[in-house]
Design a protein around this nucleic acid. Structure first.
Lengths: 154, 154
DNA sequence: TTCTCTGCAAACGCTTTGCACGGAT
DNA sequence: ATCCGTGCAAAGCGTTTGCAGAGAA
């Protein structure tokens, strides 16, 4: 077998609502000054299931924060990535998507609608820390195909 | 276990030299008109082990073909991808790399020098063609870390 | 002639950089 | 007063598009 794929998930990231206070504590714990924009951006990322692009986040957040600029989103996401609390996904198409779920999981991208889904997935224990002499630091597994919604519609 | 990782590889793609005639036959078999530029681009891709970006290919090939333009490389690679004889890799950094090896394998990208290595890897038989209701068409597995050369140097 | 390939130039879109303003300590 | 976060404007860069000229059939 090749790692365990669960058909349901039990991550804490699954919560649909995350309070600003929770986010604030989380950022502080990770050494990040909790500005209003940073709080909102991280909260959005936690609550979103769609692995949003910068543009999606901008469109959504600028309704609440009309002065928000994309530069701030870029700055903030780069900061989050450096601190390891956010992961950038580059599955294809030169579009970077972001994920606040840093637990072990895989991704599924629908080639029809473009949505990216988390797939609960347990990477197996590394039997060796090297492969062909290269030291393995990260493993990424993703699938592409047609999602539930799109295959039902067609 | 999670698929088989081989520590040596036996692919036909491993040949260091591929004759233009072999490439020509291959392109024709795949329904592609074998122009000079296309032959050279595909030959380069087969012989290269580095999963080159468009820019790398351009720098290398324009020594032989001084009039070559990047547009032609883009056109050609897009054509090859549509015909399924070349694969685009988007591991990160918004840089697309190309691979003429369309056999089952994984990739390893060095975070220090940026090189991408093929890792012989056999994806297991799909036990179900769907996961969480989504129809799986492709599976991709890549690793990141520090390659042999870079870990020896440091 | 007709069709396709090629390649220059310009457009495009995402991301980063430069820099100045403003709020917080 | 100093520091740091924010956000506008411009630059940067990889890729695509428009189009005209060249070459093959």
């Amino acid at each position: 077998m090749w790692g365990t794929i669960y058909h349901s998930k039990g991550s804490i990231m699954e919560n649909n609502t995350v309070s600003i206070d929770q986010v604030k504590t989380y950022l502080i714990d990770n050494g990040i000054h909790p500005s209003f924009q940073r709080l909102k951006i991280f909260q959005y990322l936690m609550q979103s299931k769609e692995h949003p692009t910068v543009d999606i986040m901008y469109q959504a957040l600028c309704r609440e924060i009309p002065t928000l600029s994309k530069t701030t989103i870029y700055n903030t996401l780069n900061l989050f990535q450096q601190c390891g609390i956010v992961m950038g996904l580059t599955i294809e198409d030169n579009e970077v998507r972001y994920d606040a779920n840093i637990e072990s999981h895989a991704h599924f991208k629908c080639t029809t609608c473009g949505k990216v889904y988390d797939i609960p997935f347990e990477y197996p224990e590394l039997q060796e820390e090297r492969i062909n002499g290269h030291v393995i630091k990260e493993r990424h597994f993703y699938m592409r195909g047609i999602c539930k919604d799109c295959s039902n519609t067609s």
